[in-house]
Design a protein around this nucleic acid. Structure first.
Lengths: 131, 131
DNA sequence: ATTGGTGCAAATGCTTTGCATAAAG
DNA sequence: CTTTATGCAAAGCATTTGCACCAAT
């Protein structure tokens, strides 16, 4: 994998934010520094970087994928109202693979724990709505 | 929600299978019984039925969504090679919400635990490949 | 009779690809 | 100098939508 200017800046901008951006949100950030970059380049790099384990691809119920520059083990909450994602710290001493009773013959490599909820802003807006 | 012929048969076929079909796979199944049904009807019904909690929408790293007629609490394994999904039984006595250390102000409603692995067939094919 | 559902085709929106050119090693 | 990456535009593909017609209550 070559170190290109585009790749470095995409990675830098993703590592810098905690917002779990979509490809096009990241494109807009990167574009401020590299005005001639194309969205396809952002897509291609996000794909390669996540294949290489340098970043993480987050997928859940929305149409768009989101990306996370933080590859340390952690979980996510998804706001069921606005789609925003936050990091969730969980007790580290739990081994989720151990709670499996029957793997159905699958060889398990990894797990993913996702929570669904309402973010603070949406809680407020929901409360206001019911007045 | 009206009880139409299409809706009944879509639900029946989904409850009948354990294959976690995509919308178009289910469309093919239903089409055998209702040759004039349209794919849009299948999509609309899957959406409504899962909104109503009668079925479950499964989303993970693939482009297509999958659907599950089994709404009892259980987790899934995804084959990272062929995309097949299987049900996973986990120890029932675990409360995943309890392992959260910081919710970042989110009000948590639910959780989802997904495992990634290799299905039996793909394990075999991978073994053969490395000979 | 009214409302919600259906089929069809067209539209949408995110993502991927082909291709000629440019940059990296 | 060989290979990999880029930019652009076009294509792809799952899903959604507008609309006229139909069926359920």
């Amino acid at each position: 994998m070559r170190i290109t200017n585009q790749r470095e800046i995409i990675l830098e901008e993703l590592k810098k934010t905690k917002s779990h951006p979509t490809a096009d949100e990241l494109f807009e950030l990167v574009r401020k520094r590299l005005p001639r970059i194309s969205l396809a380049t952002v897509y291609r790099n996000l794909e390669q970087l996540s294949d290489a384990g340098i970043i993480n691809k987050i997928e859940y119920g929305s149409r768009q994928k989101r990306f996370d520059g933080d590859v340390s083990p952690h979980s996510h909450v998804f706001c069921i109202r606005c789609g925003k994602i936050a990091d969730i710290k969980t007790a580290q001493d739990i081994n989720l693979k151990k709670i499996i009773q029957d793997t159905k013959g699958y060889k398990i490599f990894g797990e993913r724990l996702q929570f669904m909820g309402l973010c603070p802003q949406c809680q407020e807006e929901e409360a206001n709505k019911n007045n």
